[in-house]
Design a protein around this nucleic acid. Structure first.
Lengths: 242, 242
DNA sequence: CGAACTTTTGATCGCAGTCAAGATACGTGG
DNA sequence: CCACGTATCTTGACTGCGATCAAAAGTTCG
């Protein structure tokens, strides 16, 4: 990749120049000076699938941007039942401001790369830049909308509607260019069947049965368990309840 | 109630002086001058139970503080199934910034009184006062936490755990002084059985049966359908899954 | 006191959960 | 490259929780 040197990237840290978080993420709120200051304390990590990013009730002392991969946010009941309460894709901001403790677990669902900052850096920058806080508010509102959308799915949809809704959501996130007119997409599921079950409030077996049913009915194709081709987005949409 | 005239209330609009929203709500972010400016465009309303505040896909052109009563936020599926995705108590802020359309219905669950502002006033004030936006971010984060907590309830709890969780949540909101040690509280349910069902992703009948069971088992008492006395908060907590 | 509504209770049904094998994909070392 | 072991996923048989349908009891108005 060539490093652009036009007026817009002048003075911007090299690492940030091609970073999606600068375009669509929270870093877009910062001017070159602020980016330089922040990037001095930032570092990039790559994380293996299954690795825990934030433990339940652990002290949070850093925030991150998701650069690639999918992070799942989970909450658990004392007897081991689990529920995924959110999925974060690039270039989402990861971390819960203004709280020392998080009651949420964050875990890499796929391989994940992060750009990570000390808690203090971000919080200082937030005090200096109202625009940064504004972006954070917008992301939080987006997450709230998504959470409420899933509450409808969890509370009122049938198993097959849940699975259809899930596939639709993944299709739209993995390939944001998903044109409803195109009517066909293909992607790798970022989640195992167990994760999908924890996301939809179902069991592994029910998820598997529903996927099999959609396959035999020609709505989707599945290769190697993970790779899904949606043959008809409109049929999928019709099955999602909505 | 006597009107305080000390240094802190000097220059504050009369209506705001004893207003909860100024203490615990978003108006706490504003200085006296800003309060005066905002209060010029504000007006108070009282709304009957069942009245709709924001219609689905309607244009939103005002924001409000909830001064008393309970507002339910609902989302519906095309075939009529409904899910309550949030409850707002005083002094919550009501309205979805930065969006022209709301995909959510807001409806008075009980009698509700509101302090309401034109959309433009709030948005102008938000541009002038980062502190206001900060409060809004904090409330939004609180709502996100609550939504995620309910996702666990909806996705992974049994009917009886759901009802116990609901009673616990109401007890804590109606009477914030609910001391877990006291082990006993009493309140009026702000929701009908139908609303409770829509909140918990259950049917009316299941909600009723679970309440009956808790009553016969001595965990709660019920008078006139609406008034509930929790005999043992700790027993209720144990039944809520958590 | 009577009408309309809300809640409770009862009987039955069906969807998704549970328990149990089998099948398929994947990594590892021979 | 293949045999093996482990993970993950699928399929089958059965169960049970909560939904559905129906009716009775209680509550709140006028």
């Amino acid at each position: 990749m060539t490093v652009r040197q036009d007026v817009h990237s002048a003075g911007i840290p090299v690492l940030c120049q091609s970073c999606e978080a600068r375009h669509r993420g929270v870093c877009g709120a910062l001017d070159p000076d602020q980016l330089v200051a922040l990037s001095k304390t930032s570092s990039r990590y790559t994380i293996e699938p299954g690795a825990e990013l934030i433990g339940d009730a652990e002290t949070v002392n850093s925030y991150s941007n998701v650069l690639s991969g999918v992070v799942k946010l989970t909450k658990g009941l004392s007897d081991g039942r689990q529920q995924i309460v959110g999925l974060q894709f690039a270039p989402d901001f990861l971390g819960r401001p203004f709280k020392v403790e998080s009651e949420i677990n964050a875990e890499a669902a796929t391989a994940v790369s992060l750009c990570s900052f000390p808690k203090a850096s971000i919080e200082r920058m937030m005090r200096e830049s109202p625009e940064l806080e504004h972006r954070l508010l917008k992301q939080t509102l987006k997450e709230l909308d998504e959470a409420r959308e899933w509450m409808v799915t969890l509370g009122r949809k049938t198993a097959s509607e849940k699975v259809a809704s899930f596939l639709l959501m993944i299709a739209r996130n993995i390939d944001p260019a998903t044109d409803p007119a195109t009517n066909s997409t293909s992607f790798d599921l970022p989640l195992t069947r167990a994760d999908i079950a924890d996301f939809l409030g179902l069991t592994i077996e029910t998820v598997s049965r529903q996927l099999t049913r959609m396959r035999t009915e020609g709505v989707i194709r599945i290769e190697n368990n993970r790779h899904v081709t949606v043959e008809s987005l409109s049929r999928l949409e019709r099955r999602s309840g909505a």
